[in-house]
Design a protein around this nucleic acid. Sequence first.
DNA 1: TTGTACGCGTTATCAT
DNA 2: ATGATAACGCGTACAA
Lengths: 334, 334
Amino acid sequence: MSDSTIYEVARLAGVSIATVSRALRGTGPVSAATREKVRRAVEELRFTPSRLGVSLAEGRHAANGIVFPDLSGPYFGEVLLGYEEVAADLGRSVLILSTRDRAGVPETVKDLATRVDGLVVFGQTLPDALLTELADSGLPMVMLARDAHPGTEAVRSENAGAAEALTVHLIAHGHRTFALAGGHDEGDVSQRWTAVARTLGHHGITAPRPVECPYTVDGGYEAGLGLLKSGPDVVVCADDQVALGVILAAEELGLRVPDDVAVTGWDDIMAARHSRPALTTVRQPLRELGAAAARLLDELIAGAEPSDTTRVLATDLVIRSSCGAHQVHPPEEP
Amino acid sequence: MSDSTIYEVARLAGVSIATVSRALRGTGPVSAATREKVRRAVEELRFTPSRLGVSLAEGRHAANGIVFPDLSGPYFGEVLLGYEEVAADLGRSVLILSTRDRAGVPETVKDLATRVDGLVVFGQTLPDALLTELADSGLPMVMLARDAHPGTEAVRSENAGAAEALTVHLIAHGHRTFALAGGHDEGDVSQRWTAVARTLGHHGITAPRPVECPYTVDGGYEAGLGLLKSGPDVVVCADDQVALGVILAAEELGLRVPDDVAVTGWDDIMAARHSRPALTTVRQPLRELGAAAARLLDELIAGAEPSDTTRVLATDLVIRSSCGAHQVHPPEEP
DNA sequence: TTGTACGCGTTATCAT
DNA sequence: ATGATAACGCGTACAA
């Protein structure tokens, strides 16, 4: 509260503020005796340097921000976890901003931008014009789960290859009629749908339009109720939560998964392993995503020039039982 | 980046910095003509007031922090969501700190404390001595999911009453042999176990010792494998994730839920509704918890004296199917 | 209505 | 080894 200042410490220790600063930061020569006097004064006064003062003098916040759409569901939490951990290791605090269905996001983001040395932004949370404005202002920025915006760096995980592998696998299972659940934005998901459609095309199958829905179990359930009426062989879902919802919808309709309809997810959240049937999905390194973003941002803050480059983290196709019998066509050999 | 300062704006507009400040904040009389000149200069220079300068002058950060143990699982994410939303509404940024199994937490928390006007701390994340030190320093603090620490305010949700109601319900179902899964700390969970034990005692049943385990599905699974071997009628779990794990363990052991063994959770996370069998649990208003903490903290920051008081939010017993047949003894009438 | 000048709490440069 | 002092960027009494 009524924190003491470096001046009070200096007076009590009988030295100048410069000496106090040096003694505390070890940034210059200080005699042992003086150091001890300062130490005692600091202790007595419970002195803690004001962050504002330090930052103003240092010209940096030692903090960085992250903007994400939401925090319900495991996805963003896991990524945030990895981000915060690395940021903390690098001695930087983390400010968060959830955009949800909130009003006044641009203003809030700009405010956030004034409080940090750099910003990580999830794909699809901010309009491109705003991204440009921020990047142009010279703020170090890293995009997450989408390709780089001009003036930024980006990290995402591999989508197209995994989507193709998944699709090929499903076709090998004998599935021919596909349904796609979980709308398409311009980030990760659209890359997946594009690759799925392309792969289906190679096999003479016309890809259906993805059915948009919130990336939640409930969203998947609602979408599933509609989708399943047309009797697809398999429902490829934008993420695991949607897939879990589709499975519930299938049950509701008296369909057995995977016997009557196969279902696949994306992300490999914990529930994917535990659901029945266990979910065939694509594993994304969620924490690593956040961690990589934190490291990239740190490099930018340290002075690296933004390369408009997208770093792509590897994903793994995880075959479980929700996609159908494995005996038809075994997955490709190593 | 190379942001312009209020001095440059003042020079370009041909006025003093005081006028610029007044014009921008509407904090004093400014002629329309001057205001327009300032507006133009601001626009041309893309001027944005430095947060550091503003905070230093205003003597406040307009930001508050929150300390939680983890972010995996739905619990903390939901609470954080409610917290951040209200904080943003109040014009305050949010800094997060996850303690996980991290080293150097006390130092990091103290650093965090220098960057905020107030702090919300989840129960069991920080040692009491540190809480005392922070509170004594005059930092406004709100405890979450535990009772108030001296010098703070607290919000938690009701535990004992719900635990009693749950226990009574289970006894009415004919369950006599209880098992408790999910270790006891000194926050929410211990209050629940205490109430369960007391209620069981009233019915002549000796409460077992809770089996400690991480609050995760995997933790519940592991604990369940051990617990279930003694053949309890019901496993009361510390939270829904643990309960989901116990159900998996039961399956693994060839036990049917709830026919062979009943299982209950706590929190009413989304997966509780969707699991099979659907989870009997206690609904906690997670977002409200975070929102209430944000509001309380705001009052403290505004000058309210900490009352060492704990605000208790209502919970609801949610009867689904995992606790056993309802026909044996119907739940108490309204 | 507008401007001057001081305070906010540091760090760091330059003397000494 | 130590001290005086200039930044850093802003808000705001106080004066005009």
